[in-house]
Computed example of a mutant assay.
Amino acid sequence: MVAATDSPVRKKTEVVVAARKRSDRWQGQGTLVALRVVVIAVVLGLWQVLSGPVLPEYAVSRPTEVAASLVELLGSASGWSDIRATVIEVVAGFSMGVVLGAVLGLVLGSFPLAGRVLEPLIAAFNGIPKIALAPLFLLFFGIGAWSKITIAMIGPAFVMFYNIYLGLRLRERELVEIVQVMGGRRLHLLVYVTIPTLAAPFFAALKTGGPLAILGVIGAEFIASTEGLGHGLFTAAQNLDAASEFAGLIVLIAMTLILNGLLSWLDSLALKRLGLTPRSRPSAAEHS
Score class of each variant (00 low, 15 high):
residue 107 V to G: 10
residue 269 L to C: 13
residue 112 P to H: 04
residue 163 N to Q: 09
residue 120 P to Q: 10
residue 73 L to Q: 13
residue 147 S to C: 09
residue 63 P to A: 00
residue 61 S to M: 07
residue 26 W to A: 15
residue 146 W to Q: 15
residue 216 G to P: 03
residue 131 I to V: 12
residue 19 A to M: 14
residue 2 V to P: 05
residue 46 L to P: 02
residue 3 A to L: 12
residue 40 I to D: 13
residue 85 A to E: 01
residue 127 G to E: 11
residue 187 L to Y: 01
residue 155 G to C: 03
residue 211 P to K: 13
residue 33 V to S: 13
residue 32 L to H: 07
residue 164 I to G: 01
residue 177 E to V: 10
residue 4 A to C: 01
residue 121 L to T: 09
residue 68 A to S: 11
residue 60 V to I: 15
residue 265 W to Q: 11
residue 191 V to I: 07
residue 245 E to N: 11
residue 91 V to E: 09
residue 125 F to V: 00
residue 247 A to D: 14
residue 102 A to D: 02
residue 20 R to T: 09
residue 147 S to I: 10
residue 280 S to L: 02
residue 57 E to L: 08
residue 257 L to A: 13
residue 212 L to Y: 12
residue 146 W to V: 10
residue 12 K to Y: 01
residue 153 M to A: 14
residue 242 A to V: 02
residue 118 L to F: 15
residue 241 D to R: 12
residue 141 F to T: 03
residue 200 A to F: 12
residue 220 A to G: 07
residue 113 L to A: 10
residue 239 N to M: 13
residue 7 S to D: 14
residue 223 I to D: 08
residue 44 L to M: 11
residue 141 F to Q: 03
residue 106 L to F: 12
residue 204 A to M: 03
residue 277 T to F: 00
residue 83 I to Y: 04
residue 266 L to Y: 04
residue 32 L to E: 05
residue 136 L to F: 14
residue 40 I to Q: 13
residue 197 T to M: 02
residue 57 E to H: 06
residue 248 G to H: 13
residue 116 R to K: 06
residue 254 A to C: 08
residue 207 K to F: 03
residue 118 L to G: 04
residue 181 V to C: 02
residue 267 D to M: 05
residue 147 S to W: 08
residue 283 S to P: 08
residue 151 I to E: 04
residue 271 L to D: 03
residue 120 P to S: 05
residue 118 L to A: 08
residue 141 F to G: 12
residue 275 G to W: 06
residue 28 G to H: 06
residue 9 V to R: 14
residue 54 V to I: 15
residue 236 A to W: 06
residue 60 V to N: 10
residue 247 A to F: 12
residue 16 V to M: 11
residue 64 T to W: 08
residue 68 A to Y: 00
residue 189 L to K: 14
residue 37 V to Y: 09
residue 57 E to T: 07
residue 275 G to Q: 10
residue 274 L to N: 08
residue 28 G to F: 01
residue 39 V to T: 13
residue 110 S to W: 02
residue 240 L to H: 05
residue 219 G to P: 07
residue 234 F to S: 15
residue 92 A to H: 04
residue 116 R to C: 01
residue 84 R to D: 00
residue 214 I to V: 13
residue 77 A to S: 06
residue 136 L to H: 02
residue 267 D to C: 05
residue 169 R to L: 13
residue 236 A to S: 12
residue 58 Y to W: 06
residue 142 G to E: 09
residue 202 F to A: 12
residue 283 S to M: 15
residue 235 T to P: 02
residue 244 S to P: 06
residue 188 H to V: 03
residue 225 S to Q: 05
residue 194 T to S: 01
residue 94 F to Q: 00
residue 216 G to Y: 02
residue 151 I to F: 02
residue 224 A to E: 08
residue 130 K to F: 03
residue 48 Q to G: 01
residue 186 R to Q: 09
residue 2 V to R: 12
residue 281 R to A: 13
residue 156 P to W: 00
residue 61 S to D: 05
residue 51 S to C: 09
residue 230 G to C: 02
residue 131 I to E: 14
residue 136 L to P: 04
residue 123 A to K: 09
residue 35 L to T: 06
residue 37 V to M: 12
residue 28 G to P: 09
residue 177 E to D: 10
residue 129 P to G: 07
residue 201 P to D: 03
residue 31 T to M: 14
residue 4 A to G: 08
residue 287 H to Y: 15
residue 235 T to Q: 15
residue 270 A to H: 11
residue 79 G to Y: 09
residue 186 R to S: 14
residue 202 F to R: 02
